[in-house]
Structures are given as structure tokens and as C-alpha cells.
């Protein structure tokens, strides 16, 4: 245990602190997901509209947020708004803003993809049966689109959780930062702490994401059949 630096983990409240750090990361991702999903659905529906200008604007938003590494987006919001607008955002708020903007873009593309994947004859048959536009969407299109959408949006949650690890770089005290603090504090008594602590954080992330990935995979399979 000493050689692998795992002993530090069980000293005092170290493990609980680590879990607290993970909680901060999860909180940021869950808030961002909760905001991204409704906004993304809205934008995704708007993207299937025939209005060219609207579509071009939304497309630009999507591509701009997608092509930039999320870390660059974090820097832009965290450092950029301070200089350009004089805002004094704390790290967590900046992270939620960035991940919501990014998540909304990703979600809108998933929604658009799900909507246009519904074959045209579904719309036409609904009309031929005399359903109104609202009925058509409510009873025919949405149930089919949602089936395709659910596994993909669950995947978005794990992507969000993994991406929130980046908030470390703008000074948010999350699980990796807590691990660093614990390693530093125990440098003398446990010089190998870095191995054990980072391994633990690695596994914590895995434990947080793996069940969600499994669920997404299961749902995807069951919806395909």
C-alpha cells in the first residue's frame, strides 16, 4: 500500500474530500446538461424549419462551438469576458456557461438528426389520415424521434462529465485539484501518493461514467429492435 501510495487515501477525511471534489465536477455537468437539453431541443426543432436565415445562424453557432476545443471556450469566457465586458465570473459560473453553450449546440444537432431521420412518408401518411400538424408531431413524429434521441442524449451526459474535468484549468477546485492538494500535503509521509491518488481519480471517473454508458448502450439496442 505504501509503495503504491494508496495509504494516503484512507488517512483522515481524504477519501471523503475526493468524493466532494467529484461532486463539484458532477454538479457542474448536471446543471449544464439540465439546461442544454431543453435549449438543444428548441434549437434542434428550429434547425429543421425552412427559414434559410434562421438555419444559417443556427448552423454557424453549432459549427463555431464545435470546432473550438472546449478548453479554448473556457478560456474565452473565463478570461475574455473579464477583459471585454468587465465581468468578474467565478470559475464555476464560467464553466456552467461554457458547457451549457456547448451542450446546447451538441444537443441541437442530435435533435435535428433524429427529426430528419424520420422518413418523409411518415409525415405524408399522417397527413393522408387527416391528422392536424399538432397531432402529427405529437403522435407520429415525436415518439419515433425520442426513441432515437434518448440513448444519444444519455451519451451526451457522459461526454459532459468527462469534459468538466477541464474546469481544473480555470481554477475550479474539483476532484483532480483535491487530489493534487492531498498529494502535496502528504509529500513527506507518502512520496508515492501521486500514483495512488491519480489512479483513484481515474477509477472514480470510470465509476461515474460507465453505468451511464451501459444504460445508453442498452437503450440503443432495445430501440433498434
Amino acid at each position: 500500500m505504501q509503495a503504491l501510495g494508496l495509504d494516503v487515501l484512507f488517512k483522515g477525511k481524504n477519501f471523503l474530500r475526493l468524493l466532494g471534489g467529484l461532486g463539484v465536477a458532477l454538479k457542474i455537468s448536471l446543471i449544464s446538461v439540465a439546461l442544454s437539453i431543453p435549449l438543444g431541443i428548441l434549437l434542434g426543432i428550429l434547425m429543421t424549419r425552412r427559414n434559410r436565415v434562421l438555419r444559417a445562424i443556427l448552423r454557424l453557432y453549432l459549427e463555431a462551438l464545435r470546432i473550438m476545443p472546449q478548453m479554448v471556450l473556457l478560456f474565452l469566457v473565463f478570461f475574455g469576458t473579464t477583459r471585454a465586458l468587465g465581468w468578474d465570473l467565478d470559475g464555476e459560473t464560467a464553466s456552467v456557461i461554457v458547457f451549457t453553450l456547448w451542450g446546447t449546440a451538441e444537443m441541437s444537432d442530435l435533435v435535428r438528426g433524429a427529426l430528419i431521420s424520420i422518413p418523409k412518408h411518415q409525415y405524408e401518411s399522417a397527413e393522408a389520415l387527416g391528422l392536424s400538424k399538432a397531432q402529427m408531431h405529437l403522435y407520429i413524429i415525436l415518439p419515433q424521434a425520442i426513441r432515437r434521441l434518448v440513448p444519444l442524449s444519455i451519451n451526451l451526459i457522459t461526454r459532459m462529465i468527462k469534459t468538466t474535468s477541464l474546469v481544473l484549468m480555470i481554477g475550479v477546485v474539483e476532484v483532480i485539484k483535491v487530489a493534487q492538494q492531498i498529494i502535496e500535503a502528504n509529500r513527506m509521509v507518502s512520496p508515492n501518493g501521486a500514483f495512488g491518488m491519480y489512479l483513484t481519480v481515474f477509477l472514480l471517473y470510470f465509476i461515474a461514467c460507465f453505468p451511464i454508458s451501459l444504460l445508453a448502450g442498452k437503450l440503443e439496442k432495445s430501440f433498434r429492435e
Binding site: L4, G5, K162, S165, G193, A194, Y198, F202, F210
Partner: peptide, 18 residues
């Protein structure tokens, strides 16, 4: 199911310990 950041930290700071 794990972020690149922690993978890098583990390789860069963790592995030298063994």
C-alpha cells in the same frame, strides 16, 4: 469512460512513482 486530463496526469505524475 475517463477524461484525457486524468489519463495524462496518471501517466505523467503517477507512473514515475512505480
Amino acid at each position: 469512460n475517463t477524461p484525457l486530463l486524468i489519463q495524462l496526469f496518471f501517466i505523467y505524475y503517477g507512473l514515475p512513482k512505480i
